[in-house]
C-alpha cells in the first residue's frame, strides 16, 4: 500500500507522521535499552562454570546449576501432563465437536477464562490443591502441575488451529473411502496438524519458563540440587526475583541469570516464527 502514500501534505498529516514514527522509535529505544542493559551487565558473568556450579552465599557467588536442573524438571512435569490433555482436548474440539454443541461451547468458554486467569491465582490454586489437598507439599511436582494448568489454554488453542488448517477434503475423501475416524485422525490429520501442534508446544514452554508468580508458593525457594520430584526446587525466574529483591549484592548474578532466561526465550520465540513460516509453507504446498 506504500505506493498510494506520498509525503504528508498538511499539518495534520505531518503531525500524524511524527507521532507514528515517534511511537515506533520510542518502543524500539526502550526495547534496546532493556535488552542492551541485560546483555551488557550479564554477559561478563556467563560461563560454563556459572551454568553448572551450585549457588553460594545465597546466590551472590557461584552458579545456577541446580536451578537449571529444577527448571527443567518443572518444565518436564508440566509438559508430561499438559501435552496429552492439551492435544486430546484440541482434537475433540476441532474434530469431534461441532461449534454449536453445548459441551464444546462450555469447554471453550472455560478455556477462554482459564487463559485470562492471573498467574498469581494459579499459584493460590496450586498451593491449595496440589500442595495441601493432594499433600505434595512445596515440590517440583506441585509446581509442574500448576504450570500445566496454566499452559493448557495456549497449547489447546494453537493445536486446534493446526487441526482446523487441515483441508476439509482430507476428511471427506477419507470418509468416502470408508476409513474410520480413528485411522483418519492418526494417519492423515495428525501429521498435517503437526506445525500447529509444535507452535503450541513451544509457546507453552515459553510461558512456563517465564513464569514466576505461580511457582513462588508451589515449587518453593530451595536452591539445592533436587533429588526427587517431591523435593522443592527453585526455578530460574524465581532465582532472579530472589537475588534482586531479597539478597543485597546479588545483582551481578541476577543479571547473568536474566540473560540466560532471555536467551532461552529468544530461542523459543525464534523457533515459533520459524515454525509458523514453515507451517504456512506446507499449507500452501498441499492446497
Amino acid at each position: 500500500m506504500a505506493e498510494t502514500l506520498s509525503r504528508p501534505q498538511n499539518l495534520r498529516e505531518w503531525l500524524a507522521f511524527v507521532l507514528v514514527w515517534g511511537a515506533a522509535g520510542l518502543v524500539t529505544a526502550v526495547f534496546c535499552w532493556l535488552l542492551g542493559d541485560i546483555v551488557w551487565h550479564g554477559i561478563g558473568h556467563v560461563s560454563w562454570t556459572f551454568l553448572t556450579a551450585p549457588p553460594e552465599n545465597a546466590g551472590r557467588q557461584g552458579g545456577i546449576g541446580p536451578i537449571l536442573a529444577s527448571t527443567s524438571l518443572i518444565l518436564g512435569v508440566c509438559l508430561a501432563v499438559s501435552l496429552p490433555i492439551g492435544i486430546g482436548t484440541a482434537v475433540l474440539l476441532a474434530e469431534f465437536t461441532s461449534d454449536q454443541s453445548l459441551f464444546g461451547r462450555i469447554t471453550r468458554r472455560s478455556l477462554d477464562i482459564l487463559a485470562g486467569v492471573p498467574s498469581i491465582v494459579f499459584g493460590l490454586f496450586g498451593n491449595a490443591f496440589f500442595c495441601k489437598m493432594l499433600g505434595l507439599g512445596f515440590s517440583i511436582l506441585s509446581g509442574g502441575l500448576t504450570l500445566a494448568c496454566m499452559v493448557l489454554p495456549v497449547l489447546i488453542r494453537s493445536t486446534e488451529e493446526g487441526f482446523r488448517a487441515v483441508p476439509a477434503s482430507y476428511r471427506l475423501s477419507a470418509a468416502a473411502l470408508g476409513l474410520s475416524r480413528t485411522t483418519t485422525l492418526i494417519h492423515l490429520l495428525l501429521p498435517a496438524a503437526v506445525p500447529g501442534l509444535l507452535v503450541g508446544l513451544v509457546l507453552g514452554v515459553g510461558r512456563a519458563i517465564a513464569e514466576t508468580a505461580a511457582l513462588i508458593f508451589t515449587s518453593g525457594y530451595v536452591d539445592r540440587m533436587p533429588e526427587s520430584l517431591l523435593d522443592s526446587g527453585r526455578a530460574l525466574s524465581i532465582h532472579i526475583f530472589d537475588l534482586s529483591m531479597n539478597v543485597s549484592g546479588g545483582d551481578t548474578n541476577a543479571y547473568a541469570s536474566a540473560l540466560i532466561l532471555v536467551i532461552m526465550l529468544l530461542a523459543i520465540n525464534g523457533t515459533v516464527s520459524w515454525l509458523a513460516t514453515y507451517g504456512l509453507h506446507r499449507k500452501i504446498m498441499t492446497v
Binding site: T89, T107, L114, V121
Partner: peptide, 24 residues
C-alpha cells in the same frame, strides 16, 4: 472409544476453571 476418551480428557481441561473457583 476414542471419542469418549477424548471427552474425558476435555472434561479435565474444562473443569480446571471450576476447580480453581471451588478451591478459592
Amino acid at each position: 472409544l476414542l471419542c469418549w476418551s477424548l471427552r474425558g480428557i476435555a472434561t479435565i481441561a474444562g473443569t480446571i476453571v471450576m476447580l480453581i473457583v471451588v478451591f478459592l
